[in-house]
Design a protein around this nucleic acid. Sequence first.
DNA 1: TACGTATATAATTAAGTAATTATATGATTA
DNA 2: TAATCATATAATTACTTAATTATATACGTA
Lengths: 107, 107
Amino acid sequence: MVEIENMVDTLKLVGDKCRLSILLLLQEKDLCVCEIVEIMQTSQPNISQHMRKLKDGGLVKETKKGQWVYYSLVTQDKPFLTDLFKHLPSQKDKVQKLTCDGSSCCD
Amino acid sequence: MVEIENMVDTLKLVGDKCRLSILLLLQEKDLCVCEIVEIMQTSQPNISQHMRKLKDGGLVKETKKGQWVYYSLVTQDKPFLTDLFKHLPSQKDKVQKLTCDGSSCCD
DNA sequence: TACGTATATAATTAAGTAATTATATGATTA
DNA sequence: TAATCATATAATTACTTAATTATATACGTA
């Protein structure tokens, strides 16, 4: 059971197209900021601020690998989010199209 | 499967303490505006505007009975909402405490 | 028909939020 | 050590949204 206030806080975070998309992407694979920027087609500071909100809300965690920061989902404690994601389309194709995947950057 | 944009629109509606509470209340029982105002402890215009948003978003529908307007949940087409509500505490007690229930008003 | 009650709408205010631009930090490499 | 790359932070701007106040509509009843 979740308190209404806590649920609302999380829903506010997820009720944003950019952030919801990012969470779906992270379901497929941990991603670094530059990869998310590439997929989401927006500026780096914009993504950076969204990631901070998601981190503050406990929805993602970061892992530093050299100069890169990888983000991964933290949803064990929020099963209702996993339930929610099941109703949304897979973002696998977008992750696969990454030009920097396994080559020049983030590796 | 739900489009991200549609999901985001609904999550914005539900990501508000007042509106989420109202939806939970409506799970227990159809309610008229004055009952919702009594439970939510806020002004009638405030509730009225929230109800309009919920109606515009297709989350509730209204039924006029004399001078009263009853609202009821419309969630058949949004199973992810029902899933979500399962994680939240029942509001049965609040509906039962209504002073106007079955007596003076709304009946 | 006049009045009271339930609800809606409009206008305003205040607060919150997303995106941009500019700058800073911190790690890596030449 | 200087330059570069990845990311974060700060400041600003524009936009959106919740709540309030005041007013309107619509139904029911004396």
